[in-house]
């Protein structure tokens, strides 16, 4: 068991490798859906180039928090967000921030694969097209190819790039959606239960992919699967009833959590 004790942490610090800097941070984040309050003052830091898993029982606010990170909640009329969320130290809810640019930097992959009813090629080229990241055919070809390669899908679809993305299998569709998100070169990728609609083999592929993506991207993933959180994440945050219960290195959270609720949830006593 690779448990980080305090001594070990200290050792790491002294050995010169810095702990990951904070890429995004929520400060006193509150969210209301109409009259109902969904988040009660959450403070959470997302470390750079690591995978952070958000866990907790259904309705605990983890997806809500995730959707705050790229302001997807703006598309819901009755949703109000309080507190502040920083991306590289800048408040993303500041009126001067352009939400379009924000979402290009903080991409998102959804629970159910949602490829557009277009060809595989056009699905990936969509983001670069709307953000003007490429202009020539050759540039688009390159972006599409590298994105599909990073998403581990290129070899499977290279002969049928012009076929509809909706014709792929569920797991392939989800990786296509990840490729689509990668194509705009985001800094952060948010994933909302990306494997909940996939079979175990497709899930394994996506998890492998997430692990590889950590090298270049900061990833926040919401998941209901404890094993998945344990497999793919470096840090884990536990939510319950709209509150952040605790947050820490994944190994510690799964072996020796501070809070009894985390213990109970992980061992399957509720949730």
């Amino acid at each position: 068991m690779n448990m980080l004790t305090d001594a070990a942490v200290e050792e790491t610090l002294q050995s010169g490798s810095k702990p990951a800097a904070s890429k995004m941070a929520g400060k006193d984040v509150t969210v209301h859906y109409g009259e109902k309050q969904a988040l009660f003052g959450v403070n959470l830091e997302v470390p750079e180039r690591q995978v952070m898993a958000l866990i907790g029982p259904s309705g605990c606010g983890k997806s809500t928090f995730l959707r705050c990170l790229n302001r997807m909640n703006d598309t819901i009329d009755i949703c109000r967000v309080g507190g502040s969320i920083l991306l590289d130290g800048e408040d993303i809810y500041d009126p001067r921030i352009d939400v379009v640019e924000l979402r290009a930097r903080v991409g998102m992959v959804f629970q159910k694969p949602n490829p557009f009813p277009k060809s595989i090629y056009e699905n990936v080229a969509y983001g670069p097209r709307i953000h003007g990241l490429a202009s020539k055919k050759s540039e688009f070809d390159e972006v599409v190819e590298t994105s599909l390669q990073k998403a581990g899908l290129f070899n499977e679809v290279k002969d049928r790039l012009q076929e509809p993305g909706t014709g792929l299998s569920g797991g392939q569709q989800q990786r296509l959606c990840i490729a689509r998100a990668i194509a705009v070169s985001p800094e952060v990728i948010l994933m909302d239960e990306p494997c909940s609609a996939l079979d175990p083999i497709a899930t394994a592929k996506v998890e492998e992919l997430i692990d590889e993506l950590r090298e270049n991207y900061t990833i926040v993933i919401v998941t209901h699967s404890m094993q998945q959180a344990a497999r793919v994440s470096q840090r884990t945050a536990m939510f319950h009833l709209g509150n952040l219960v605790e947050e820490g290195p994944t190994d510690k959270m799964f072996t020796n959590p501070d809070d009894k609720r985390t213990q109970d949830y992980i061992t399957g006593r509720f949730g």
Partner: peptide, 27 residues
Amino acid sequence: VPQAMRDGSYGLGATQSETIMRVIMPA
């Protein structure tokens, strides 16, 4: 047209009119 299409497009940073022209209308 499923909300997932709109979410997917907004999630990539598309504006409302881009989403309508490029995703919703074709669908």
